[in-house]
Design a protein around this nucleic acid. Sequence first.
DNA 1: ATCAGTATTGATACATGGTGTCAATACTAT
DNA 2: ATAGTATTGACACCATGTATCAATACTGAT
Lengths: 149, 149
Amino acid sequence: MHSQETHLTEIEIEDRLKQHGYRLTAPRSVIVEAVLRHNRPFTAEQLVAELGDGPDAIGRATVYRTLEVLASVDVLTRIVSPDGHPSYISGAPGHRHHLLCEECGTTVTFTACPMNDLIDTLATDTHFLIKDHTLEVFGICPSCQESRS
Amino acid sequence: MHSQETHLTEIEIEDRLKQHGYRLTAPRSVIVEAVLRHNRPFTAEQLVAELGDGPDAIGRATVYRTLEVLASVDVLTRIVSPDGHPSYISGAPGHRHHLLCEECGTTVTFTACPMNDLIDTLATDTHFLIKDHTLEVFGICPSCQESRS
DNA sequence: ATCAGTATTGATACATGGTGTCAATACTAT
DNA sequence: ATAGTATTGACACCATGTATCAATACTGAT
Ligand SMILES: [Mn+2]
Ligand SMILES: [Mn+2]
Ligand SMILES: [Zn+2]
Ligand SMILES: [Zn+2]
């Protein structure tokens, strides 16, 4: 099966931060909660807008830094769309790719990676040392297909 | 074979522009020549720096617009690296992907696309209408591997 | 519980990369 | 040669992200 609904809980994520040597702070908790409220890709600016106002406002820089941290700990994937606008998708740690709806942002995560064979071929053919790859798939989700016709 | 050295000539590119209804202008010719001088990924700003000075300086906006045009005509691939910085790679039109050296930018273009099978599976599994995909591979080229040890 | 050391925060200023406007100019088809 | 329109480029502007740095808040050790 491709789809994979598993998300870590807030506590699991905060443990993970600690395990990686990060401190547990109030702003980070707030950001983690906000991240978990999203089940679609969101931008850093969206989060800034959500959290950057009111009495316990969180600074723009902190939001950006924390998103980086969460990505480095692998509970967040930073995905750069072809038009160059980066967005974040939360999910369980591990190698994963995404199928995104271009209209509404609905995301299907899949862990099947078709690259393994190709990588071997490329390595022997080119003598490159392969380190990494990006792979994202774009389309229209069933619901958006309907509301089109 | 994966590697594919084919590049269009300046004249072929300009014909292609005409065929797509674009006018042939002096700035565009200059930009096409500049693009063809690069055999590695380059950024828009690099080109602005190369062409934005001197007597026949080309405006920043024109450089950006022309790169867009060339990409839309498929003689240029705009590739957004994971850190979000876009760069351009010239090449012959058609479906293609790239293997890039993270150190020196050396690029191997390949037309073998491992996505076809996966796309079918994803489509039947998720009922998405698949439109597009991005796939880029990163590594270290043989020459840069040597100069490391 | 207190403390010292240090990671983190957030205000601010700055940098980068890219876009919208619009009058002037240059193509191109006729 | 001309008319019509695509293109140019100066300019101002915006959006996204980063460096700095003094103030604050964690954390582990005592
Ligand atoms: Mn993969
Ligand atoms: Mn492909
Ligand atoms: Zn949709
Ligand atoms: Zn290299």
